[in-house]
Design a protein around this nucleic acid. Structure first.
Length: 464
RNA sequence: GGCGCCAUCGCCAAGUGGUAAGGCAAAGGUCUGCAAAAUCUUUACUCCCCGGUUCAAAUCCGGGUGGCGCCUCCA
């Protein structure tokens, strides 16, 4: 498959280091709050990549960290009057709750910065011994001038960064672009013992240390949100490659942002939504489907109207699954019929097209259009046999699973009580007692079932 | 100032050299006691503008206009 590599600014054929194995590291959340839909986009996109790589036969080792020590954690814990550990535990639990419902699988390892202080210190020591880091008053900085490749991911230049004038000016630093690997303890802050005194790790170093610790010195894919390109990933590359002399990651992948009113959703603009905000009104699955309906690198706008239309589209897919299920349960024809050959072929071809699309830099939008095209063909084809319906159903489930959607249980035994009411309603209809039949339809509705009349008779469907 | 992205139907969104996918909405049909359901059909001679390259461009090149992002905690 092809993946867009930020490092080369082009799509490249994906070739893992070890055949059939993929090592992925996704920069995870700082656990000081519920995560917002922008975070959700990142988790969902790279979860989908992971699922797709598995589907393509790779063994994927996926690591996603929890940043559980930094300024935001310290400030928030102080505000709440709880310990940093308590804060982290709470929002890690919240992370898993939302992630699970969004269909985001757990990583193979979810390392925490605070549990990897040893490897972090070791890495900083290595950098210092190689002359890429210097310490002042208990702080340790990375020397961006000493590392000549600094800025290669985002085409920044260490000397020129000063002209941006937005870099934190610290007179003690040799160069304004130099960044902290280790921060000396301040009063009231948590700390660990280190060769430079008591302190805590800088932000960037944890990802380098943990990626190496759990995946190796060179990994296949390193991913994160667009804004992590600079400085976070740039700094990770500098630290890691200066320390090991090897490439840190072969493919750098970045997802685009979610905008609100065409402006970036951000904390400073105050226009951000947490996942918890959204699911008061929409299913988690609608949110996931929405995010996958655009290419992962494009910015997407977010609004209620967009989610509404996304929901309608998802309903169309489920409607087709329900119709297929109805055939599986009620059809009297078991084996596929001769005249179903064409649709069986279409079902098969859907997967081929889906793979072609997903192979092209994870084009989920096109992958989804394959599902809709199949729906259209199925609706046109009048499937009669259980076998063909099962085939179609299985295809939707399989491809839906790659996208992390269409998991809802639709194969449900219709309880005899419900069957009875439906039958009664049908009898009432036949007797033109429409008042009674509408009452019974409402009753079924209350119990979670829909009844639809068609030429072949009535159909009972579970409400999703 | 440095680096980068985007502009395709009312809305969303694919397509990066071979003659405009898909979804939502809308309109019209089918079905129906009604339909709130379901389903079908239709809906961009055209891809922000102006040049150029080419047998051929939404797709490549140059210029313009408009919008956005990173360089600052942020996915």
């Amino acid at each position: 498959m092809k993946l867009y590599n930020t490092m080369s600014r082009s799509k490249e054929e994906f070739v893992p280091i070890k055949e059939n194995t993929v090592m992925m590291y996704n920069c995870g959340p700082t656990v000081y709050n519920y995560f917002h839909i922008g975070n959700a986009r990142n988790f969902i996109i790279f979860d989908t990549l992971r699922r797709y790589l598995k589907y393509r036969g790779y063994q994927v080792k996926f690591v996603q960290n929890f940043t559980d020590i930094d300024d935001k954690m310290i400030n928030r814990a102080n505000e709440e009057g709880i310990t940093i550990k308590e804060l982290a535990d709470k929002f890690i639990a919240e992370y898993f709750e939302d992630a699970d419902k969004l269909g985001v699988m757990h990583a193979d390892v979810h390392p925490k910065a605070t549990e990897n202080i040893g490897p972090i210190i070791k890495l900083v020591k290595t950098l210092q011994s190689k002359g890429y880091a210097y310490d002042i008053d208990g702080d340790v900085y990375f020397d961006t001038i000493a590392y000549k490749d600094y800025g290669k991911l985002t085409k920044h230049n260490a000397e020129e960064l000063e002209s941006g004038a937005r870099v934190d000016l610290d007179e003690r630093k040799k160069n304004p672009a130099d960044f902290a690997l280790w921060k000396a303890k301040k009063p009231g802050e948590p700390f660990w013992k280190s060769p430079w005194g008591e302190g805590r790790p800088g932000w960037h170093i944890e990802c380098s240390a943990m990626a190496m610790q759990y995946l190796g010195e060179t990994i296949d894919i390193h991913s994160g949100g667009m804004d992590l390109q600079f400085p976070h990933h740039e700094n990770e590359i500098a630290q890691s490659e200066a320390a090991t002399g090897k490439p840190f990651a072969n493919y750098w992948l970045h997802n685009g942002f979610i905008n609100v009113d065409n402006r970036k959703m951000s904390k400073s603009l105050g226009n951000f939504f947490t996942v918890k905000d959204i699911i008061r009104k929409y299913d988690y699955e609608v949110l996931r489907f929405f995010i996958l309906s655009a290419h992962y690198r494009s910015p997407i706008n977010f609004s209620d109207a967009l989610l509404e239309s996304t929901k309608s589209g998802l309903d169309r897919l489920y409607e087709c699954l329900l119709n297929l299920n109805h055939i599986v349960v009620y059809s009297e024809v078991s084996d596929s019929l001769e005249e179903e050959k064409a649709i069986i072929e279409t079902i098969r071809e859907t997967e081929i097209s889906f793979v072609k699309h997903m192979d092209d830099d994870l084009n989920t939008a096109d992958g989804i259009s394959d599902l809709f095209n199949l729906v259209k063909q199925i609706n046109l084809s009048d499937i009669k046999s259980k076998e063909t319906a099962k085939l179609a159903l299985a295809q939707f489930r399989k491809l839906g699973d790659v996208l992390g959607i269409l998991h809802k249980e639709i194969q449900v035994e219709i309880p005899s009580e419900i069957e009875k009411i439906a039958k009664e309603r049908d009898d009432a209809r036949k007797n033109k007692d429409f008042k009674r039949s509408d009452e019974l339809r409402d009753l079924l509705n209350e119990k979670g079932y829909l009844v639809e009349d068609s030429k072949e008779g009535y159909k009972i469907k579970i409400k999703l």
